[in-house]
Amino acid sequence: MRADRMRTLAALALAGFLILPILPLAIWSLAHGWRFPDLVPQTWTLKAWSLAVDARSGVLHSLAVTAGIALATTLLAALIGLPAGRALGLYRFRGKGLVTLLLLAPAFLPGIAIVFGLHGVFLRLGLVGTVPGVILAHLIPVLPYMVLVMAAVFSRFDPEFEAQARSLGATPWQTFSRVTLPAVLPGLMTAALFAFLVSWSQYLLTLAIGGGRVQTLPLLLFSFSSAGRNDLTSAIALLYILPGLLVLLVTARQVTGRSLALVGGLRP
């Protein structure tokens, strides 16, 4: 059938488009001497990979720092975003539109618009060049996603269950941990995945607020890329993709789609 063939072609084109930019990275990471017009490297080598995992190159350290910052940012965002999401999802109140708009704003304002001013504040607070400073800065673009996803989750949550638990004698903590949390946990996980990815990919905020001292993977990656070490750059780039891939494989795969629906809806 013609429609079938068209569909297969379109699917192949899409798959090819998605995978293509990753292929040269994979080859470069194993190449020694790969110059135009060679289609494949003259020599294959694991040199770039052994350099990347060598402690002196600092790549693994950066990987740990990047992951630590992303995890801490996610945790903080969850602690702050969960209550806010509850307020927005469960209640109707005056000024709600304005509050929603304010919480949404950082998703639409690029980091470069605020980072110069933020740098001035953080400098006086002694936060520039520190991991806590970078985590706080990452909170800005991360929080909107957390709050809005949680708001959508809570708008489908029935507080009646909590009331019942409390009337049966549960403490507030018990109510939260045994009733509320299990109910919102799937949504929270998707929001957390999102928060993690936004922090994980940050470049500009880390560069400005980390002041070079907080050396996350994208900074290290750019440092080698701008020095023309395509082999090392590619090995680091692939290492940089790996955790996201793992997270994706570990969490239910539908998760991203669902959380995106919540983000895409963006309804207070």
Partner: peptide
Amino acid sequence: NRVPISDAADVVNQVLSEKEAGV
């Protein structure tokens, strides 16, 4: 602690910012 950078001008700017902020 080796801090890799792409451009030393960024570091000059950083120290300048610190001085301006009284650090």
